[in-house]
Design a protein around this nucleic acid. Structure first.
Ligand code: FES
Ligand code: FES
Lengths: 145, 145
DNA sequence: TAATTACATGATTTCGAAAACATAAGGAAT
DNA sequence: ATTCCTTATGTTTTCGAAATCATGTAATTA
């Protein structure tokens, strides 16, 4: 569905959001540990999120990554997916045609499009706050057992 | 969404189905041309479809691949996806956890599951005949312009 | 039964995402 | 000002899917 990078990015963002709700910053080493991802690779993905304006960072002692509190509830998953994987998920052809088109559709265009649109709607309406709260309450988890 | 191999497999199956509706067999060279895929690689994927019992083949002069006419309307996309990509599409976690679980769910489990189930339902109810007829009538296409 | 056609299969190569490595740069604390 | 902690960035390596190459096998036809 999404690339590995994108999966890491979503999990990292949720983890950062959880800490930001309590006004704390977190370093990439801790993030990598918590979401079970390679450290160096995670650091790269975090840079993309910073450049995309989804998260902020502070260097130096007691530095780390964070999300301004007022942004947590207004940051939606679609922004993360778009920053990492681009818009292929939302506009690409389900059978890999170079472009999805109404006038030159592939055999599964209609059926695929409705599912793709639902996925997009889900990503557009799911924000980091609700996901972070799920982690905090222990209902959901960021890594396997 | 699906792997490239799986995209090729679906397109190939539709193309074969179209010809099988008219009692014709097609060779892998023609298939590769029609669906715009690498010949040798396509041949491999066709073998998997044969072994999975989705299509049949006949060697020798005037040989080729085909689908018994009575099977065309009862062959569903889910069989092809399952044969090529396996069941990760239907049972895998949307965030890449080693396994999707109700008791140890990832943050997007509930939301993701409903979309995944719709995709599964779509694949389980879409058969090759309807897709082949779309190609035949010129409404849909197997390759880009 | 030899020639031809077309599918079948294993080995090898290519390519890009994923991961790791090495080094630079910035900011806080003292 | 200096030191140390932490993020930032460019380069290299790894790994597996994708694609190709080379050869084998079966069936039809003349
Ligand atoms: S053309 Fe294939 S999904 Fe639209
Ligand atoms: S656990 Fe992630 S989708 Fe079910």
């Amino acid at each position: 569905m999404f690339s590995k990078s994108c999966n890491y990015a979503i999990k990292a963002a949720i983890f950062i959001a959880k800490h930001s709700l309590e006004e704390n910053k977190v370093g990439f080493v801790d993030i990598a540990k918590e979401i079970d991802s390679p450290q160096a690779f995670t650091a790269k993905i975090l840079q993309i999120l910073v450049k995309s304006g989804i998260i902020d960072s502070v260097k130096g002692v007691n530095g780390g990554f964070y999300i301004p509190k007022k942004n947590i509830a207004t940051t939606y998953l679609v922004e993360i997916v778009d920053a990492i994987d681009g818009d292929a998920v939302f506009h690409g052809c389900g059978l890999g045609l170079s472009q999805c088109s109404e006038t030159h559709p592939c055999p599964v265009h209609d059926k695929f499009k409705s599912i793709r649109d639902e996925l997009a709607h889900m990503l557009e309406t799911t924000n980091l706050e609700e996901l972070a709260l799920g982690i905090k309450s222990g209902e959901t988890f960021l890594k396997s057992l």
